[in-house]
Protein backbone atom coordinates (compact mmCIF):
# COMPACT_ATOMS: atom_id res chain seq x y z
CA UNK A 1 0.00 0.00 0.00
CA UNK A 2 1.27 3.48 -0.81
CA UNK A 3 2.14 5.78 2.01
CA UNK A 4 -0.44 8.32 0.89
CA UNK A 5 -3.15 5.66 0.95
CA UNK A 6 -2.08 4.62 4.40
CA UNK A 7 -2.27 8.15 5.67
CA UNK A 8 -5.66 8.76 4.19
CA UNK A 9 -6.97 5.57 5.78
CA UNK A 10 -5.61 6.71 9.12
CA UNK A 11 -7.30 10.05 8.68
CA UNK A 12 -10.55 8.36 7.77
CA UNK A 13 -10.41 6.18 10.88
CA UNK A 14 -9.63 9.15 13.09
CA UNK A 15 -12.58 11.01 11.61
CA UNK A 16 -14.87 8.07 12.28
CA UNK A 17 -13.69 7.75 15.85
CA UNK A 18 -14.32 11.44 16.32
CA UNK A 19 -17.84 10.94 15.00
CA UNK A 20 -18.73 7.84 17.05
CA UNK A 21 -16.61 8.43 20.15
CA UNK A 22 -13.36 6.88 21.29
CA UNK A 23 -14.82 4.14 23.46
CA UNK A 24 -15.00 0.45 22.74
CA UNK A 25 -18.69 0.57 21.86
CA UNK A 26 -17.77 2.58 18.75
CA UNK A 27 -15.90 -0.38 17.32
CA UNK A 28 -18.72 -1.88 15.31
CA UNK A 29 -19.92 1.36 13.68
CA UNK A 30 -16.31 2.19 12.74
CA UNK A 31 -15.79 -1.28 11.26
CA UNK A 32 -19.09 -1.06 9.41
CA UNK A 33 -18.17 2.26 7.82
CA UNK A 34 -14.71 1.04 6.77
CA UNK A 35 -16.34 -2.09 5.36
CA UNK A 36 -18.88 0.00 3.47
CA UNK A 37 -16.27 2.38 2.05
CA UNK A 38 -13.56 -0.14 1.17
CA UNK A 39 -15.54 -3.42 0.98
CA UNK A 40 -13.05 -5.00 3.40
CA UNK A 41 -11.08 -4.19 6.53
CA UNK A 42 -7.40 -4.48 5.72
CA UNK A 43 -4.72 -5.46 8.21
CA UNK A 44 -3.51 -1.91 8.23
CA UNK A 45 -7.02 -0.64 8.94
CA UNK A 46 -7.35 -3.14 11.80
CA UNK A 47 -4.11 -1.93 13.33
CA UNK A 48 -5.08 1.70 13.04
CA UNK A 49 -8.51 1.10 14.53
CA UNK A 50 -6.91 -0.79 17.41
CA UNK A 51 -4.44 2.02 17.99
CA UNK A 52 -7.02 4.79 17.94
CA UNK A 53 -9.47 2.90 20.17
CA UNK A 54 -6.65 1.70 22.40
CA UNK A 55 -7.40 -2.01 22.15
CA UNK A 56 -5.33 -4.94 20.91
CA UNK A 57 -5.39 -5.62 17.14
CA UNK A 58 -6.28 -9.24 17.90
CA UNK A 59 -9.47 -8.01 19.55
CA UNK A 60 -10.39 -6.12 16.40
CA UNK A 61 -9.74 -9.18 14.28
CA UNK A 62 -11.74 -11.36 16.65
CA UNK A 63 -14.77 -9.09 16.37
CA UNK A 64 -14.53 -8.90 12.57
CA UNK A 65 -14.37 -12.68 12.31
CA UNK A 66 -17.58 -13.04 14.32
CA UNK A 67 -19.82 -11.03 11.98
CA UNK A 68 -20.65 -12.42 8.57
CA UNK A 69 -20.98 -8.96 6.97
CA UNK A 70 -17.44 -7.95 7.93
CA UNK A 71 -14.40 -9.33 6.15
CA UNK A 72 -10.62 -8.95 6.09
CA UNK A 73 -10.05 -9.95 2.46
CA UNK A 74 -11.03 -7.81 -0.51
CA UNK A 75 -14.26 -8.76 -2.23
CA UNK A 76 -15.97 -7.66 -5.39
CA UNK A 77 -17.33 -4.16 -5.94
CA UNK A 78 -20.83 -5.53 -5.51
CA UNK A 79 -21.79 -8.12 -2.96
CA UNK A 80 -24.77 -10.25 -3.82
CA UNK A 81 -26.39 -12.19 -1.00
CA UNK A 82 -29.03 -14.68 -2.00
CA UNK A 83 -31.29 -16.03 0.73
CA UNK A 84 -30.88 -19.77 1.20
CA UNK A 85 -33.37 -20.19 4.04
CA UNK A 86 -36.33 -22.50 3.68
CA UNK A 87 -39.15 -20.44 2.20
CA UNK A 88 -36.88 -18.88 -0.40
CA UNK A 89 -35.46 -22.33 -1.04
CA UNK A 90 -38.94 -23.72 -1.68
CA UNK A 91 -39.79 -20.70 -3.82
CA UNK A 92 -37.04 -21.62 -6.27
CA UNK A 93 -33.69 -20.48 -4.90
CA UNK A 94 -31.85 -23.30 -6.66
CA UNK A 95 -32.90 -22.19 -10.11
CA UNK A 96 -31.62 -18.69 -9.34
CA UNK A 97 -28.30 -20.17 -8.20
CA UNK A 98 -27.92 -22.15 -11.41
CA UNK A 99 -28.76 -19.26 -13.70
CA UNK A 100 -26.54 -16.76 -11.92
CA UNK A 101 -23.57 -19.12 -11.65
CA UNK A 102 -23.80 -19.99 -15.32
CA UNK A 103 -24.10 -16.37 -16.36
CA UNK A 104 -21.14 -15.14 -14.29
CA UNK A 105 -19.00 -18.25 -14.63
CA UNK A 106 -18.34 -18.42 -10.89
CA UNK A 107 -19.78 -20.32 -7.96
CA UNK A 108 -21.37 -18.94 -4.82
CA UNK A 109 -18.59 -17.98 -2.43
CA UNK A 110 -16.48 -16.66 -5.31
CA UNK A 111 -15.70 -13.30 -6.91
CA UNK A 112 -15.61 -12.58 -10.63
CA UNK A 113 -12.13 -12.04 -12.12
CA UNK A 114 -12.86 -8.41 -12.86
CA UNK A 115 -13.86 -7.96 -9.19
CA UNK A 116 -17.29 -6.81 -10.28
CA UNK A 117 -19.38 -9.23 -8.22
CA UNK A 118 -19.03 -11.49 -5.20
CA UNK A 119 -21.72 -14.14 -4.79
CA UNK A 120 -22.70 -15.23 -1.30
CA UNK A 121 -25.53 -16.92 0.49
CA UNK A 122 -27.30 -15.29 3.40
CA UNK A 123 -29.77 -16.55 5.94
CA UNK A 124 -33.37 -15.32 6.00
CA UNK A 125 -33.54 -11.69 4.89
CA UNK A 126 -36.99 -11.01 6.34
CA UNK A 127 -38.65 -11.11 2.91
CA UNK A 128 -40.09 -14.61 3.17
CA UNK A 129 -43.52 -13.52 1.93
CA UNK A 130 -41.87 -12.44 -1.33
CA UNK A 131 -39.18 -15.01 -2.00
CA UNK A 132 -36.82 -15.80 -3.55
CA UNK A 133 -35.05 -12.74 -2.19
CA UNK A 134 -31.57 -11.30 -2.43
CA UNK A 135 -29.60 -8.31 -1.25
CA UNK A 136 -27.36 -6.52 -3.70
CA UNK A 137 -25.09 -4.39 -1.54
CA UNK A 138 -27.77 -2.83 0.65
CA UNK A 139 -30.73 -3.05 -1.67
CA UNK A 140 -33.26 -5.83 -1.47
CA UNK A 141 -34.83 -7.59 -4.47
CA UNK A 142 -37.74 -9.97 -4.17
CA UNK A 143 -39.87 -12.40 -6.16
CA UNK A 144 -36.85 -13.24 -8.28
CA UNK A 145 -36.96 -15.38 -11.36
CA UNK A 146 -33.73 -16.68 -12.89
CA UNK A 147 -34.05 -14.16 -15.70
CA UNK A 148 -34.80 -11.23 -13.42
CA UNK A 149 -31.87 -12.08 -11.14
CA UNK A 150 -29.45 -12.21 -14.06
CA UNK A 151 -30.76 -8.91 -15.41
CA UNK A 152 -30.21 -7.23 -12.05
CA UNK A 153 -26.64 -8.53 -11.86
CA UNK A 154 -25.87 -7.55 -15.44
CA UNK A 155 -26.68 -3.96 -14.64
CA UNK A 156 -24.10 -3.75 -11.86
CA UNK A 157 -21.05 -1.66 -12.65
Amino acid sequence: MLLAEKNSLTEEIERLVEKYGSNRSSLLPVLQDIQRNHRYISEHAQQEIARVLDIHPVEVYSVISFYSFLNTKPKGRNIVRLCRTITCDLAGKDSIVKAVERELGIKFGETTKDKRITLEFANCLGMCDQGPAMLVNYKVYTKLTPEKAVEILNELK
Binding site: R24, L28, L31, Q32, V63
Partner: peptide
Protein backbone atom coordinates in the same frame (compact mmCIF):
# COMPACT_ATOMS: atom_id res chain seq x y z
CA UNK B 1 -27.11 0.95 15.58
CA UNK B 2 -26.64 -1.75 13.01
CA UNK B 3 -25.97 -5.43 13.34
CA UNK B 4 -23.64 -7.15 10.89
CA UNK B 5 -25.23 -10.43 9.97
CA UNK B 6 -25.38 -12.55 13.12
CA UNK B 7 -28.66 -14.15 14.17
CA UNK B 8 -27.58 -14.72 17.77
CA UNK B 9 -27.29 -10.95 18.28
CA UNK B 10 -31.09 -10.93 18.60
CA UNK B 11 -30.61 -12.60 21.98
CA UNK B 12 -30.70 -9.66 24.35
CA UNK B 13 -27.37 -10.17 26.12
CA UNK B 14 -25.56 -10.98 22.86
CA UNK B 15 -27.14 -7.82 21.46
CA UNK B 16 -25.69 -5.81 24.33
CA UNK B 17 -22.26 -7.38 23.83
CA UNK B 18 -22.47 -6.38 20.18
CA UNK B 19 -23.39 -2.80 21.12
CA UNK B 20 -20.37 -2.71 23.40
CA UNK B 21 -18.09 -3.56 20.49
CA UNK B 22 -17.64 -7.24 21.28
CA UNK B 23 -18.35 -10.53 19.56
CA UNK B 24 -22.07 -11.21 19.89
CA UNK B 25 -21.78 -13.95 22.46
Amino acid sequence: RMGSGAYVCGEETALIESLEGQRGE
